[in-house]
């Protein structure tokens, strides 16, 4: 749709404007009513480091330590899940590949639960993302090995191996939870963690996800050309001089790291990785030169938007974010599956 170079620039500007609008609305929006003028002077004070206060101090605390980390985390988590979807759909050459569907998210969750169960999370908060990374990598590697034969993935094999790995991961998590029930402190931590979401997220969580998303994105930019050719097929990529095995391995590591970072901070939020890349591919075409930055912004927009939606309409009820993304994403997934069915026969 946005074919010419100029149209693409307009599209990116629209995305950036939308991100900025969502950030401003998210900062204004919350249970406590803080006027815009106060927020402006809070930021001015914080940046200039002067201590003349025209606002109550608790307001500065809410803005700087509650709302700001929350929206940074929402943007980063959305962006990383969408980017993972883009990479996986290209590596597996399959429109249905995405972190939640092929069992990578659940692998990351299992890793995180294991870190809590084993008490590693008490030693260092970084153990949760680390274990999540290990879990995500193992799940992704297994699905990759099973479903990829001679550079091609069979849709049925991909989905079935994803379902099997997810089931295994989820049952292992239930087992760990059941085992930990006689130690209520551990069980409570596991339950609290599995609920996920953006509530109570702090700057510690920002430190976990922001560096990983930004560095992964920078790495990914190096792969925008190889990703294009890999999308066409292994033999195409090899014939124009791309070391497919190495490229795939690096991309799998990057996507495991991003899924793990997102899952360990906000829990499993499904369907962003599936839906966002698809819509953007329809709008911008398959070239990763545009698709990668557009997904970064698009993922951020989706999760910020979903969070704002939950907060405004259901302010008094604690509705998990995953509910919103799944309500929108699941019908879309079914639609793609029906479309694929014609391609299968």
């Amino acid at each position: 749709m946005f074919n010419s170079h100029k149209a693409k620039i307009i599209f990116f500007s629209l995305q950036i404007i939308l991100v900025i609008l969502l950030i401003i609305t998210s900062i204004l929006q919350g249970p406590a009513n803080i006027p815009f003028s106060h927020i402006a002077s809070i930021f001015k004070n914080y940046i200039l480091k002067n201590n003349q206060t025209s606002f109550p101090l608790w307001q500065a605390d809410i803005i700087l330590n509650v709302r700001l980390p929350r929206l940074i985390i929402a943007s980063c988590a959305g962006a990383s899940l969408a980017l993972c979807g883009v990479i996986m759909q290209s590596i597996f050459r399959n429109p249905l590949a995405s972190p939640s569907i092929i069992g990578v998210s659940s692998g990351a969750s299992l890793g995180a639960v294991l870190a809590i169960y084993g008490g590693f999370s008490i030693i260092s908060t970084w153990s949760i993302p680390f274990f999540a990374f290990v879990g995500a990598s193992i799940s992704l590697f297994i699905v990759y090995k099973i479903s990829l034969t001679r550079g091609e993935t069979n849709i049925a094999t991909l989905l079935l191996s994803g379902v099997a790995i997810s089931a295994l991961n989820i049952s292992a998590m239930s087992l760990l939870l059941a085992l930990s029930l006689n130690n209520w402190d551990v069980a409570r931590m596991i339950i609290y963690w599995t609920m996920g979401g953006l509530d109570g997220r702090t700057w510690d969580h920002v430190l976990m996800i922001l560096p990983i998303v930004t560095s992964s994105f920078c790495f990914l930019l190096f792969y925008s050309k190889p990703l294009n050719v890999i999308l066409l097929g292994e033999q195409h990529a090899l014939s124009v001089g791309i070391d497919v095995t190495r490229t795939r391995r690096n991309l799998l590591i990057i996507s495991s790291a991003m899924t793990a970072a997102a899952v360990s901070v906000v829990g499993g939020i499904g369907f962003i990785g599936l839906v966002v890349p698809h819509i953007l591919r329809l709008l911008l075409g398959p070239s990763h030169r545009y698709l990668l930055p557009a997904s970064l912004l698009g993922g951020a927009i989706t999760l910020l938007g979903a969070d704002l939606f939950v907060h405004t309409l259901f302010a008094d009820k604690a509705i998990p974010l995953g509910v919103i993304t799944a309500t929108l994403g699941a019908p879309f997934f079914l639609f793609l599956l029906v479309k694929q069915r014609t391609a299968l026969h």
Binding site: Q235, H236, I242, D243
Partner: peptide, 23 residues
């Protein structure tokens, strides 16, 4: 390296199935 090989030998694969909307 694959890159150096690709500067010497080009390959036209058998599969001409190109499902993605590249120009």
């Amino acid at each position: 390296s694959r890159k150096k090989i690709a500067q010497q030998v080009a390959f036209v694969p058998q599969s001409i199935n190109l499902p993605y909307a590249f120009r």
